[in-house]
Structures are given as C-alpha cells and as structure tokens.
Design a protein around this nucleic acid. Sequence first.
DNA 1: CTAGTAGTTGCAATAGTTTGCATTAAGCAT
DNA 2: ATGCTTAATGCAAACTATTGCAACTACTAG
Lengths: 148, 148
Amino acid sequence: MSCGEKLAEEIRGKGFRVTPQRGVILETIAHMGGHLSVPEVFSAARDRLPGLNITTIYRTLETLHRAGMVDLFYSGSGPTRFALRDPDQAHGHLVCSECEQVMDIDESLIAHLAEEVVRETGFSIDPHHLTLVGVCDDCLSEGKRRIS
Amino acid sequence: MSCGEKLAEEIRGKGFRVTPQRGVILETIAHMGGHLSVPEVFSAARDRLPGLNITTIYRTLETLHRAGMVDLFYSGSGPTRFALRDPDQAHGHLVCSECEQVMDIDESLIAHLAEEVVRETGFSIDPHHLTLVGVCDDCLSEGKRRIS
DNA sequence: CTAGTAGTTGCAATAGTTTGCATTAAGCAT
DNA sequence: ATGCTTAATGCAAACTATTGCAACTACTAG
Ligand SMILES: [Zn+2]
Ligand SMILES: [Zn+2]
Ligand SMILES: [Zn+2]
Ligand SMILES: [Zn+2]
C-alpha cells in the first residue's frame, strides 16, 4: 500500500470521500515533503492528473486540515504553507520579523505553553505548527530594532 | 492637536516622512478603532482623500507595523486585520478553529509565555496581538472534534 | 447491480495582496 | 526661497485566495 493509499484510507475513515484528485494530492504532498504552498502542490499534482484545478487544491488542503492531517503555517509574509502532519511529533516555528529566519520549536516547550494557556483560560492550543512571531537572539543583540 | 496629527509626529520621529496620505490613514484608523482590514480602511480613507490608492494603504500599514504603531492580526480565515497599537496594554487573541470565536488574552499571561520562550530559545516574542489557534472550552466539551 | 443522495469538482467571477516602475514630493542643505 | 536626494505614491500587472453554481461521481441503501 503506497503512502497515498494509506492516507486515502485515513480520510475515508474520517468520513470524507476518496476521489482521484485527493489521492493524487495526498501522494504529491507526501512525496514532496516539507512546507508547501498551494501553487507548488498544484504544479506538481497537475503533472500526475491533467485537468486538475487549483481550486481543488485549496479546498482539499482545507478539508485535510479540518481532518487533522495537514497543518497550516502562515509566517506573516508570502503565501500560506501546508505540511503533512506528523502525529508523533508536533513541532512549531519561531519567525523572526527582522531577518525572516524560521526556527523550530520543539514539542516539549509547546506542551508547556499549551498547558499554561489551558490552565489560565480553558483554551486548548493546537500544538501542531504553532507559529510565533518576534525577534531572534541575533537580531536583538545587533539592536536592529527594539520591540516595545 | 488631533489624534491624527499626534500620530503623524510619532512617525516623523521614527524617521518616516509625513504625507497627506499617511495623515488621512492614521486619522481614519484612529477614529474607526478596532481590528480593521485594508479594504475597510481604504473605503473610509478614500472619502477623505479622493484619488487615494489601495496599494498605499497596504504599504502604509506595513510601514506603521515596522514602526511599531500598528499590529497585524491574522486569524486563519478572512483578510488580515490591523489595529492601532496600545503601548500600555499588549493584548492577544485566542481563535477557536471550531466556532470562529475570538477571545482576548491578557497581558500578564502573554508575558509569562514570552518569558518561557525567551528563556528556552533566546527568541523574543512580540507580545502585541499574539494570536493562538486552537479549540475553546465550549467546543472541546461539546466534543465537536478532538485535537490530536 | 441500480438508483438516489449528497459531497466533490471544474469553471468563471470576484476579492485580497504583492510587485515593478515611472512620477511626485517631503525633508534637508544651501 | 531653491534645488537636491531619496522616500513615497499611483498605476498596471501579476499573484494568491475565496465563492457561487452547474455538472459530476463516490458512497449507500435497497
Ligand atoms: Zn532575526
Ligand atoms: Zn513546520
Ligand atoms: Zn469554539
Ligand atoms: Zn486585538
């Protein structure tokens, strides 16, 4: 069973239909890996399934996101990016607004943050691809800008 | 001195030029208040200054953001929103991905979170309009969806 | 296997955002 | 006041994202 087929079974299990388009899109993002934009997924998936429309990519990724299989990742600049979720390892990102650098946050720190928020507010943060914007160590010490 | 003029002085102090467009845009967002989208600011500001181009709104808000006078607020759906920064009270938002509800986070909780992150990673989170996506108390107890 | 239902797709129109470039004008120095 | 320098604006085009609707098809029930 290919990884596309495995993912197809997973979305069927969540009550969504398995279509050729969804099969190809899942296969594509699984093989490309990483953090992809819709146009990137589109041009790769269209090669496997001519006639595929870019609207279908947007809608499929939204569906997969609601199904918990794909994460959104918006860094504050450029197009929104999507990534296949790794259920075993929830990572997040720190985006420096000065140098555009993107760092990873590891799972345990995210878990601590989420714990504090849920205790204070009752709100459960989604630990997958938690994205925080600020200023990195380097940029802060270079004094390019003070955050007020 | 109107609030628009006061803000104009502030951006001049940060090294940016004061133009009629910027004066009108500042006056407009100060009087409208709240969390505004670019199209909203545009249609209001254009009434005061005919000929104003929407591109100028985008660029001015980006400039004001870099100057620390305006915050970005992207909730994961709809257009990006902007708000005049209140330097005395940094608030943030919790966005429920189930019911679209937006709650406020108060400053002290944000300060705690930022402290934990900077201690672990050296990264300084911008406390203004910190926005976290997840599931609210109500939606979680109603079991509309489990977060994995 | 067949028919019905409802979720999904493609297409076109629309909305929101960014970029390049020529023109204009704010702030500064004389 | 006058001219210089460079930031800022307007405009057009490209890019990114969303929505409405008709046609289609995956799934289910019989
Ligand atoms: Zn940086
Ligand atoms: Zn990631
Ligand atoms: Zn909710
Ligand atoms: Zn706010």
